[in-house]
Every structure is written in structure tokens, then in C-alpha cells.
Design a protein around this nucleic acid. Structure first.
Lengths: 196, 196, 196, 196
DNA sequence: GATGAATGAGTATTCATTCAT
DNA sequence: AATGAATGAATACTCATTCAT
């Protein structure tokens, strides 16, 4: 009967499920508490308020996300391979947790501006990772020397994110991970033919 | 289809101002009515409910948006030039209306899922436009024959959108339109060097 | 069916009844609204918040209270008669409204310090009235020349208030107004015999 | 009757400090426990519930209060001197403990009616003491024979209490004890001149 | 005796929408 | 057409008290 899982993660995992199932605006604290198997008041022993649950959720999940991708990337010799790995892992991790995919791609974006700014703080770690790959590519000569790093980063993140969001909005019907290679090719080569 | 009663656009324009100034969640119907110079109840003579104001807002503004871009594109001979024009116009139109930029890039995304799905319906016209350019490019040989049209469209839209959102979140400090050429080059050539 | 009584006073009167019947801490806004025959939200068209109902209640009732007493006192020639009239009216007005007596003598004193400070602001008008009678008495020679006005005021108000509170705590069992003369004699002559 | 366990008084003294510093409604059990240096649960080994802390606080402090005043009064030959001593001691004891003064004159009065009724039970001992002085005065001929004992008691207690409360609400800025003689004179002689 | 993590009941306030005028 | 007063559903958070250790 005893659940040794620390209540902190228990509540965060419950929040993911409840938000994915009910939507952001129908995810009441009492529902999350019930799903976590604790009393409403217990939530407030671990989180300052409701917003704190959501920011913590994003920090914990995104933190794990970035860590895993960093580990995988470290071993790859070229920027192209690093980028491919990043896209593959990103898609694989989303596909592996359908609830989390809904929460991060759709529901959490309904939060108010203040919360989204705090979420963006967490995202910065991921954007830095993308930028480091771009730098590597410019150093190895794989990428163009005149590449604007910020713009390239926006293209890479925007493309990955749009692809993932479209996939979630289509009810995760198709195999997201299978798209990684094509997205990678697009990002490296662009739409044009090589000789242009 | 467009409602020609003057109060209709009066209310939509008021909504843009109020949402940009107060944020999505602080944009009460009564505030919009006051800004539009009408009584609260009058709103409901022109719109079914609050959501209808927002969807109509997006339809009206995005409709104009697409029309203008379509006109400009029509005259361009190549897919590359069409794409460049689309990016340029997109950035120019956003830069020309600071309020609208805030509303479409930040505030309207906080709306609930149902509303966002209806907004996406409106967006489809724009996405079709992008896809038609991609088709053109494949036909003229400018773009790769094995290009996945949907993925290419997601890359193009995702990159443009991410670039615009980053610009708004940075308080529209720099010249967005000036980035059009670089974004275009990135989308056509990708990050890699030509010979790869 | 139409009730022409302005809702503002309707709500204040409802608050007096509900607080007297249920006690300060059991006087929920929804109960007051129901008693007043309006919707919960209507309360907030007339009052900023719950505290505002209570302060307004005290202002309205105490304002009437002070006005009535001032009118009666104005015609009295001597300080002694003015004081007697003040005590009589004070006791009569409390005895005339059992609900109000409970609310002002018992329930409103449970409010938090901030509210009580605002209530004290209203009370100041009454205390000024008492002080003006004391000044009159010193001028006419009825009262001792070395009388400390503030202390005398504290004795007069303290005695009246303590007498009223004791009466309410004894469930208003006896005739409060009948005590006015004795209280007046006590305040003018003190406990001691005249020759001391 | 007094609980001799050291933690009992430790908790009561902590309650006085916490209530004086934070106000009645911000004096949570957990704050009192922390100030007393015990765990929250330990409170409930010494007190039945929170109300019991407050009633016990009043009993302990008021008990000491009454005892000290009784001792001092016993030696005085006349009712006038007894009354003067009572007022002096009352004011001196309040002035000696600023925290206690705030708690008894302001904060404890915000408690709910039930608690205040229990506090009044404790107060009865003090009121009896005042009545015994009045009886003495009537017997010795110092006080008027037609004095209504209850009314005289209400005047005496009301005046002392109002004077003390006003002093606390003025942040204990002036010397309360210095007012004892004047208050005493007022109570014995009243406001009027001797020959009236 | 002592601890402190866990409990769960209870309520003021906002705002989209209506409808009598 | 236009008004705007009235409606009423819906929800995060606190804190006194308990009880397993």
C-alpha cells in the first residue's frame, strides 16, 4: 500500500495526465491531487501554487529531455550527425510519452504570458544546445561560414516544433520519429537543389 | 462574406487594441465594448459570443494578409522569388502593425484548444499558399524532386513563425523585415555548404 | 413585484439581518445576496468587496445615528440636558433595532484590525459630538473647569458602550432606555456623595 | 489548577508574542509552536485546541492580574483608595507588558463570540472585585446610597477599559499610569461641579 | 512524551451573456 | 438597433488537527 515514490514527482506526473486528458483550463488542483492520490492541501507542501506545479513540470521533464539529448550528442563526431541525433531523440521522446507530448505542444501554450516567459527560461537551455551544434558545424566547415546563428537556430527549432505540433494536432496518427531523417535533410540542404 | 456594418470592424479593431494592451486573459468583453464605443450588449448583435470576436478578428486580419501576399506573389516568375516575397510581405505586414503582431504571435495562442483549432482552420489558407509555392518549385526544378511537401511547408512556416515570435518577445526591438533575405536563403539552401 | 428600494440599502439591510442571525464569521456573501433577493454578483455592482459592505453598513447606520442625536441635542440649553438626550437617544436607537444592536455591539468587533480602524474613523464623529458637549459644560460652568476633555469623553463613551454591550450580551432582556437617567447621573455626579 | 509543566507557560508566552506581532488572524498554531520551540503536535499535548490556548492565556494572565490587584487593595482602608489602587495597578500592569496590552485590548476582541463569552467568564472575577469596592463605598458612606451597583461597575470598567484601549490604539505613546488619578477623580466626582 | 507530514473543508469574486426597456 | 443592470457558475488555497513513528 505504501508508495515510496516521492510525492513531488507523483504530483508532477499526475499533472501531466490530468492536463493531457482534460486540457489546461480544466485541470483543477483538486483533480491533480486526486490523480496523485494525495489531499488537495498536500500539493501545497511541495509547490508554492498552481503555476509552480506547471513550471516545475516543465523544468523536470525538459531537464531530463535536454540531459538525454546532450548525452547522445556528445559522442557524435560531426555537426550533421549531432543535429540528426537531436531531431531523432526529440521526436522519439515525444512519441514515447503521448500525454507529455500533448501537454508541451498544446496545453502549456495556453498558459498566461508570465508563465510562458518562465517556461521560455527553461527552453533557453535547449536553444543553447542547438546553437552549440551550429557553432560546431561552422568550425568543421560542414555549415556555411556566413550562417546567422540565431536565425539558423530559429529555423531548426521552429521546424522541429512545428512538425511536432502538427503531429500532435493530428492525434499522433503517424510515426513522428520516422520523419527525423527528412527534417534533418531539409534543415541541412534546404528546399533547393544542391547546385543552386 | 465580410460584414459591412461599420460597428463590426469597429469592434474587431477595438479587440486588437485591448488584447495587445491588456493581454488575452485581461481582455474582457466590457473593455472591448468601451474601446469600441458601444454598449456591452451591442457586441452580441454583431458576434455570437466572445470566441466569435476572436475568430472573426483572425479571419479578417489573416484574410487581408493572405490576399495581399497572393497579389504580390502572382507576378513573380520563380518559386524562389515567390518564397522571398512571401517572407518579406509576412514580416513587413507584422512590422507595420505592432498591436496585431502581439495579438497573433503571443496573445491569441493563449486561447483554449477549441479556439485554436478554429484559428488553424483560417491558417490553412496560408499553409496552402506555401504548399503551392513548393509545388511550383518542384515543377520548375528549383526545388528537389524528392521534397516532402508537408514537411517543407512545416519547415517554412515554422521558421517564419519562430522568427516572428522571437522578434515580438524581444519587444520588436530590431528590424524584422531586414531578416527576410537571410531566412529565405536558409530555407532554400539549408545550413550546409552547397557541395554537401 | 418591482422593488423600488435601491439595491444599495437593500443589501446593507440584508447584511445586518444575516450578521445578527449567523454571526460575523458565518455571514457569507451568498447568504447576504439571498437575503437581499439579488444575485451574488449584484453585490459587486454596489460594493467593492465584502469589507466594503461592512464599512458602508456602519457608515450608513452610524451616520443616521449621529444625525438624529445631533438634531435632538441642538435644542437643549444645558450640557447636562444635552448629555442626557445623547444617552437616551443612543439607548433608544439600539433598543429599536435588535439586529443592529447585535451587529454593532458584538459582531462587527470581530472584524480584523484594518476594518476596525476604518470603523473607528466613522466613530470619530460621535466622539467629537461628546467632546462638544463637554466643552459646552465647561463653558456654562456646569462641568468642572479642570476637566480633561479626552478622559471625560472616554468615561462617557466607555460607560455608555459597556452598558449597551452588557445589555446585548444579556440578550436584551431588560429595558436599556430605562437606564439612561441613572447612567447620566453617574456620569455627571460620579459615585461619590455630593459633599466629597 | 495551574499546569506546572514548563512547556505550558512556554506556549502561552509564545502565543502572546505571536498575536501581538502578527495580529489575531495571523497567529497560526504553527507560528506559536515555532516561537515556543516545540512541534505543532506538541501544542495538543497541553491544550485541547487553539481556542483553549487563548482562553488559558487569558486565564493565566488575568488571574495574575486580579491576584496582584487584590493584594494591593486589601490593605487600603477606604473605597476611594481601593478604587484608586485598582486603576493604578490596572494601568501599571498593562504598561509593563506592551505585548500583553495589545493582545488583551485589541487582538483578543477579534475572536469569535463563543471565545469572547468564555473570556468574559474569566473577566467576571475582575468585575466582582470592582463590585466589592462599590459595596464597601456604600457601606462606609463614601458612595451614594442609591448607587446602582451594576451600572456603577459598568461605568468604572467601561471607563478604565476605554482609556486603556485608546492608549493602545495610539501606540502606547503617552504615560497611561499617569492618567490613573484623573480617571479616579472622574469616576468618584463625575463631570459636574460638586454643588450640583 | 515529541514529532511534523498529511489532511480536507470551506468561500469571495469575476465576467460572458441575457433581456426588459 | 442599442442599452447596461443583473445574473450565477466555478475554483485555488489556508490552516487547525491528527496519528504513525
Amino acid at each position: 500500500m505504501k508508495n515510496n515514490k516521492p510525492k513531488y514527482m507523483q504530483i508532477i506526473d499526475a499533472a501531466v495526465v490530468i492536463i493531457a486528458q482534460n486540457g489546461y483550463h480544466q485541470a483543477q488542483v483538486s483533480k491533480i491531487a486526486k490523480q496523485a492520490g494525495v489531499a488537495d492541501g498536500t500539493i501545497y507542501l511541495y509547490f508554492k501554487n498552481k503555476e509552480d506545479i506547471l513550471v516545475s513540470l516543465f523544468q523536470e521533464k525538459m531537464g531530463t529531455f535536454i540531459e538525454k539529448i546532450e548525452e547522445e550528442i556528445a559522442g557524435k563526431p560531426s555537426a550533421a550527425e549531432k543535429l540528426l541525433t537531436l531531431i531523432e531523440k526529440h521526436f522519439e521522446l515525444l512519441a514515447a510519452d503521448h500525454h507529455l507530448a500533448i501537454v508541451t505542444q498544446l496545453e502549456l501554450r495556453q498558459s498566461n504570458l508570465e508563465l510562458r516567459i518562465r517556461i521560455n527560461e527553461v527552453l533557453k537551455g535547449y536553444l543553447k544546445l542547438i546553437e552549440s551544434i551550429i557553432h560546431t558545424g561552422k568550425e568543421t566547415g560542414e555549415f556555411r561560414q556566413d550562417l546567422d546563428v540565431r536565425l539558423a537556430r530559429q529555423m531548426i527549432f521552429g521546424s522541429i516544433d512545428e512538425t511536432a505540433t502538427t503531429w500532435v494536432m493530428n492525434d499522433q496518427k503517424y510515426d513522428l520519429a520516422a520523419l527525423a531523417k527528412s527534417v534533418h535533410t531539409l534543415l541541412v540542404k534546404g528546399c533547393g537543389t544542391a547546385h543552386l
